[in-house]
């Protein structure tokens, strides 16, 4: 069954705090699809996940490089951006499949390649109606994610109250 919930945050710091909470629940083989318009905070989200996992490299946008790896003490992070990729065939030609199996993958503009992954976690970032600095972050996942998302929702609700 599919679990989904929305959390509202203010500013890039707010996005980063939520991302750091997710980081502790990620493990090798996980695929996180980030969706949202330009400047909605996708790279900010990945930066915060990487920092929370102890990566020391500076996380920059992979729009031009297409894919970047960061080392953490426990695993590798694969940071992909499909902004310049037209379709699933082009994504497959990047030859990342082997690395997806052994890394934690965070894919910006992930909707383009959603069909490639059996059990992705989708993180949607949208500018909230309440103001240009506010974001609604929607987590959606099934299978392995159901329990983790329920726990994450409770954890975030607890952190705010």
């Amino acid at each position: 069954m599919t679990e989904s919930f929305v959390v509202s945050v203010h500013g890039a710091d707010g996005t980063a705090r939520v991302a750091a909470r997710l980081a502790g629940r990620l493990r090798p083989g996980d695929v996180v699809l980030l969706t949202g318009d330009l400047a909605s905070g996708k790279t900010t989200f990945v930066k915060a996940v990487a920092e929370a996992m102890g990566a020391t490299d500076v996380v920059t946008s992979p729009t031009f490089t297409l894919a970047q790896f960061y080392d953490t003490p426990t695993t590798k992070l694969l940071h992909v951006d499909t902004y310049r990729i037209d379709d699933l065939a082009e994504y497959r030609d990047l030859g990342l499949a082997d690395f997806v199996d052994t890394s934690i993958s965070l894919i910006e503009w992930g909707e383009l390649v959603a069909a490639e992954f059996p059990e992705p976690l989708t993180v949607g970032l949208t500018v909230a109606a309440s103001g240009p600095e506010d974001r609604d972050i929607t987590f959606t996942g099934a299978g392995r994610w159901a329990d983790d998302l329920a726990a994450l929702r409770d954890e975030l609700a607890g952190a705010r109250s």
Partner: peptide, 18 residues
């Protein structure tokens, strides 16, 4: 010195898209 996030070329391209 280096960029902490986006390159300037990327900023140009994304503003162009906006």
């Amino acid at each position: 010195g280096t960029t902490k996030d986006d390159s300037v070329g990327e900023a140009y391209d994304k503003v162009a898209r906006m």
